[in-house]
Structures are given as structure tokens and as C-alpha cells.
């Protein structure tokens, strides 16, 4: 998860700073740089630039709050800065820095403007809102009350339930695994050719967060049935109602939960939702 070759040296430097006792200015700079290095290079999978920027903004704010919340610390930062800006002996260095900063800004603009074009970014809605009703095979369901008809067998008739799960397994390995993969991690044979990439059902943030009716909607209507805000409109998910019967869709949903050992979100649970 973390890139130890980066994180450990950063830690070592920070611990070293603790003993070296630099000035407050040096200390703040060191921490700011350390945070940036860890965020930008410290993760095995790089953190996207947007998040690095957001996090560094928050960290800068926190460091500023730290420094200025105490007159002593603030003085320790301010005095050398003021001295640097005013005293004659620093003048050559001041001129250098004063010129270097605009130069760096200009350079970054240059690189930004001459950088090779990147594919445009489309934000993706993770769980778009389902419609109120859903018509599959000419039967209209109320999404509020729709539930997997086989789910209740789990408790009442485990043997029959297992039969449905096995049927779902067959359906999955005849239809779904090309994209979603043998292990349901979204890494099927065609996954590398898809954008957005197929959903990873093993991720606890996907099917475990959802009611089975939601899956039923997504499976039966696929990419073409995404609502207006459910970007990015490139999903290759087929509308499986063209291929599977209603029973088969429910069975394959059973199998998804069974294989990944997740539980669906219960029906009628009023929740505060995520991200609040």
C-alpha cells in the first residue's frame, strides 16, 4: 500500500529534525515538504493530483494555523522572514529568490501549455439514483419494495437456495466473467479494453452498500439504462434483460453476494447515507 522506500526516509528525516531542532521556519517547511512527498510519492498506487492538491491545501492551512496560533512561534517564523526581506546582507539572495519564484511560475506555465494533450476527464457517479419504477420483461416493479424473490429461501430452505446460487454461478461464468473477472474483482479478460472499468464486486464499497433491487436495475438495464446524471455514458454494461430472464438475473445477483461473501443492504433501511 505504501511505498516504504519513500515513507521510511521521510520518517527518518522528520525524526532527525526533532533532534536537530531547527528554527520554526525550517520545521514548518520540513513538515510541509514531508507531507507533500508522502502524498505524491509515498503510495504504491499514486494518489491522483486533484486529491494531492486538496490535501496539501488543508495541510498548509493547518500548518499556518499552528504557526500563528502562538505569538512565540509566529515570531520565530516572522522575524527571520522579515530580516530576509529587509536586511541589506540578504539583498543578493532576496533578489535571487524574488526572481526565481516568477521564473518557476513561468516554467510551470510553459510545461502546462506545451504538455501533450491528455484525454478529457469524466467524473463518474458511483451509485446513480435508481428510477422509482422499473419495467423488466414488461413487468413493472416498484423499486422501493422490490426484493430478491429467492433471498428468503436462504433461511427457509437452504438447499433450494443453494440450487439458485449454483444457477447464478453458471450464468455468471457464461456471461459476466469476461469483464468482471473470475474473481469478481473487475479484472476480466476484456477489462483492460473498457472505460469505465468493470465494477469490482469484492470491494466493500460496491454491492455491499446496495439493495438487491439496485443490482437488479443495473443488471437488467445496463449502461444504456443509466439515468441522466449517471455518467460517464460509456459503460459497456449490456442491458441483460435482452439475454436473461428475470429469474436468472435474481440468481446471478444471489451468486454475486454468495461468492464475495457480502450481504446486500437490507430493504427499507432509512440511512443517513455516505459522504455526509
Amino acid at each position: 500500500m505504501m511505498n516504504l522506500a519513500v515513507v521510511l526516509p521521510v520518517l527518518a528525516v522528520l525524526i532527525g529534525i526533532r533532534f536537530a531542532k531547527p528554527s520554526m521556519l525550517g520545521w514548518v517547511t520540513a513538515w510541509w515538504l514531508a507531507a507533500w512527498v508522502v502524498l505524491d510519492f509515498g503510495f504504491a498506487v499514486p494518489v491522483p493530483k486533484t486529491v494531492v492538491k486538496e490535501f496539501m491545501g488543508i495541510i498548509s492551512l493547518a500548518l499556518a494555523a499552528y504557526v500563528t496560533s502562538d505569538p512565540q512561534r509566529w515570531r520565530e517564523v516572522r522575524e527571520p522572514t522579515t530580516a530576509f526581506l529587509t536586511e541589506r546582507k540578504f539583498l543578493p539572495l532576496l533578489v535571487l529568490v524574488t526572481l526565481a519564484i516568477p521564473a518557476a511560475v513561468a516554467a510551470s506555465i510553459y510545461f502546462d501549455m506545451t504538455a501533450p494533450a491528455q484525454a478529457p476527464i469524466f467524473g463518474r457517479t458511483v451509485h446513480p439514483a435508481p428510477p422509482a419504477t422499473l419495467t423488466v420483461h414488461e413487468v413493472t416493479h416498484d423499486m422501493q419494495t422490490l426484493d430478491n424473490p429467492y433471498r428468503k429461501l436462504e433461511a427457509s430452505d437452504p438447499a433450494a437456495f443453494a440450487v439458485h446460487v449454483e444457477a447464478g454461478r453458471k450464468i455468471y461464468y457464461e456471461n459476466c466473467f469476461y469483464c468482471h473477472g473470475d474473481l469478481m474483482q473487475g479484472g476480466g479478460m476484456f477489462a483492460h479494453a473498457l472505460n469505465p472499468i468493470p465494477t469490482n464486486f469484492q470491494d466493500s464499497g460496491t454491492i455491499a452498500m446496495l439493495q438487491e433491487s439496485f443490482l437488479f436495475w443495473r443488471v437488467s438495464k445496463g449502461g444504456p439504462g443509466l439515468p441522466e446524471e449517471g455518467g460517464p455514458w460509456m459503460s459497456a454494461m449490456p442491458a441483460w434483460e435482452n439475454f436473461l430472464t428475470e429469474e436468472e438475473i435474481w440468481e446471478v445477483i444471489l451468486f454475486l453476494y454468495d461468492f464475495t461473501e457480502q450481504r446486500p443492504r437490507a430493504l427499507h433501511v432509512a440511512s443517513g447515507g455516505e459522504g455526509h
Binding site: 526581506l85 529587509t86 524574488t98 519564484i101 511560475v105 506555465i109
Partner: peptide, 21 residues
């Protein structure tokens, strides 16, 4: 844009230095 932005930054820097001084 390079000249414009760099000039703006430089101006801000100079103002800051002047202000502090």
C-alpha cells in the same frame, strides 16, 4: 501567459517586500 503571470507574481512580491519594509 508566462510573462503576464510571472510579472504579476513579481509585482505581488515587490509589493509584499515594500509593505514589510
Amino acid at each position: 501567459p508566462m510573462v503576464k503571470t510571472a510579472g504579476g507574481v513579481l509585482l505581488a512580491e515587490l509589493l509584499l517586500i515594500l509593505w514589510v519594509r
